[in-house]
Amino acid sequence: MTEAALPAPVTAPAVDRERLTAIGFVLPSFVIIAGVFALPLVLLLGVSVVDANGLTFAHYKRLLGTPYYLGVIWNSLRLGLLTTLIAFLISYPAAFALARARGALRAILLATLFLPLAASVIVKAFAWTILLRSDGIVNETLIALGVIEDPIRMIFTETALIVGAVNIFLPFMILPIYAIVAQLDPRYAEAASTLGASPVVTFFHVILPLTLPGIIAGVALVFSLSVSAYVVPTLLIGEKYPTLATTIAKAYLLAREPGFGAAAGVVLLGIAIAVVALSARLSREPK
């Protein structure tokens, strides 16, 4: 029996070594996530419920029990929801156009989508204030064309806020939808049509469900970005539209109320997590 002379396979240590290697690869990112992200989160949570006298929920009572702060939460939600909705309505057809485009046109369209990501949010928000203010380009043009006689108040309105937010966060909606649409086999729509589905039925029963993962990714991204936006509301609408993000900044920088700021941060985080979790759940559930 020659086989008997062979050493027994030593699989167990090999597996252990593999596992150690895997841990080694994961460790740096784990340390960074844990140290820079998870730990501050735990501290934030702690600060929001602990004061000099011990455990307290006073900050949460103030946030959720005062009409003013409920209005602030509503403002954030409204900013997030409107921005997400409008960005989706613009992005969905845009993603299909992008996927259909060929050659130079596609390159140009992708570049116009990616390049603004390189500019800082502050730069883009300021650009919008320049465009929209009373002596800005939009008003001057409208007056020169005789469409209006006096400048329209555009800056520091909710419209300005939403227009700016949609513009700035648009790539985060288009790109995930585009990624799905570009891979969508045209045979699906053809199969549906040969089975008797009109273009409208094909859209709602085949195209929309198949692109849902991209939509959900885009919605999760844009909502979590816009609900927590700070620079955009500060520059485009200011004091009269307080959001959770601007409230947090005020609590830390002006009012010196870290406990209250932390509680507002936890509420904001809770809203974002709830929406993202809901999105993830929707994308997994087959229709």
């Binding site: 086999d185 045979r187 699906y188 053809e190 199969a191 549906a192 040969t194 089975l195 009109s198 273009p199």
Partner: peptide
């Protein structure tokens, strides 16, 4: 969609 044909595609194109 108004022709009443049935097509079996190479990639099947099952939903």
């Amino acid at each position: 969609h108004k022709r009443n044909v049935g097509v079996v595609f190479q990639s099947y194109a099952l939903f």
